[in-house]
Design a protein around this nucleic acid. Structure first.
Lengths: 139, 139, 139, 139
DNA sequence: GTGGTCTAGACCACG
DNA sequence: GTGGTCTAGACCACC
């Protein structure tokens, strides 16, 4: 279980597959699911697990290396950088804050009233909470 | 001023230009900025106004026709369908609800605690409100 | 009643408006609703009656003149040619035969079985008969 | 032969080329010539085969995607949706029924007697049948 | 390789 | 004048 990553990839999500992989690895590190110094699955292994093209996995890994999250160990593979967990937590916070703010601004710009927006948010919060709960249960 | 539509197109937005046009028209109808039965600017006119290719505008209009929002008046132009305003309001509601829910679910999946999420939302709400206010003032 | 033509124009029919006018005049002559030597309404009159562009009516009349169905009377208007009724009957027959054959051939080419086609025809016949009846009643 | 689609495109048909393509694919799926999950020829391939512009093919494919008939496989191509065959059969049925009914109603409205219409239909049926037979033979 | 977007420019049918 | 269709060719993201 520690060595197997349970990612959910949706190829028709609009979000590029390599982006989904990179983001989920980043979030897993931020949440402590993967620790500093730990090795991550090889490109081929991950590609088999997710049933996707190895090139796509490689691209996600490359991006994480560029961000300093992963470090290459010659002849061995990629490991999580020492400073990665803290950096990932900050990045996660930054990303989510930005996305939330963006969507709320969009709501305001679309001429919805304040009441309608807060209503949508409240409903969205409870639904998302329910979804998250059922997902955890289902896994 | 009543006859001029103030659209903001960003060609490098990721979102296709024709999509931006279609969405802004849809939102304008939902907000009552364009009424049922009203004619919308011709393909060529809109293309001139936005300084983009007429084909791109035509594609946006075609999509709105497929959605039943616009109706062709042969040899004259396109007008807003009678049922469009109500449909556009529902569609706008649906779109925003979906986006908000998506972001919130992402927040939950990113292993943020409930407290962190509600904090981000409240901050985002106030910031977005401030932005919207300043935008209205600035216009 | 003899002088007023009850045409049904559908601008969004796919079939051009001027075609609809020309065809309905042709069919009216074939059916005896308009007799040889009779004058037809002026372009302006017809345009007012149908609430369409005079140019469109003019184009229909021009086409009927080219076909020899209508003859210009200098300073007076257009009248139905002497040979028109018989010609219109033949033309009507030809048109309908062609259209029916065309649609049936399409049905065969679309890989429908013979049984499905005859079924569609039988249903279509009864429905069309019902529609025609209700239309006559409704008028 | 199993992998080659034999489409007949007539550029001067009145019916737009992209419509002809979309309809023939729809009919091919309805007839079982293309199965669910199967990949259809790429835009460029089809454009080469039919000697037309890739954009025209792309438009046909886009329309079929909007109708839920085709699904994009990112970076790979387009495949027939699982629900497409049944949907296409229903759509084909609907289209043909509508066309047949339209023609028959026209026949009634053109003041032909019921006897004349049924006569035209029976003749049309036998002729269309003969044409279809000779076409099959000739292929 | 794949589809998607955008531009530029031409031609047509219709009113 | 209007929208609709088609062509030609370019660039992009993704796998």
């Amino acid at each position: 279980m520690s060595n197997s990553l349970f990612f959910q990839i949706d190829p028709d999500n609009g979000v590029p597959v390599y982006e989904q992989i990179a983001r989920q690895i980043l979030f897993a590190i931020a949440a402590g699911g993967i620790l500093a110094g730990e090795m991550i699955p090889s490109v081929r292994q991950m590609a088999r697990d997710l049933a996707i093209n190895p090139n796509t996995v490689a691209r996600a890994y490359r991006q994480l290396q560029d961000d300093g999250v992963l470090e290459p160990i010659r002849g061995s593979g990629l490991q999580v950088a020492a400073a990665a967990p803290e950096a990932c937590r900050q990045e996660r916070q930054r990303l989510m804050k930005e996305r939330i703010k963006l969507v709320l601004r969009e709501a305001y710009q679309s001429q919805l009233t304040e009441a309608e927006i807060t209503d949508l948010v409240t409903r969205g919060l409870s639904e998302a909470r329910a979804d998250a709960a059922s997902l955890q249960k289902g896994s």
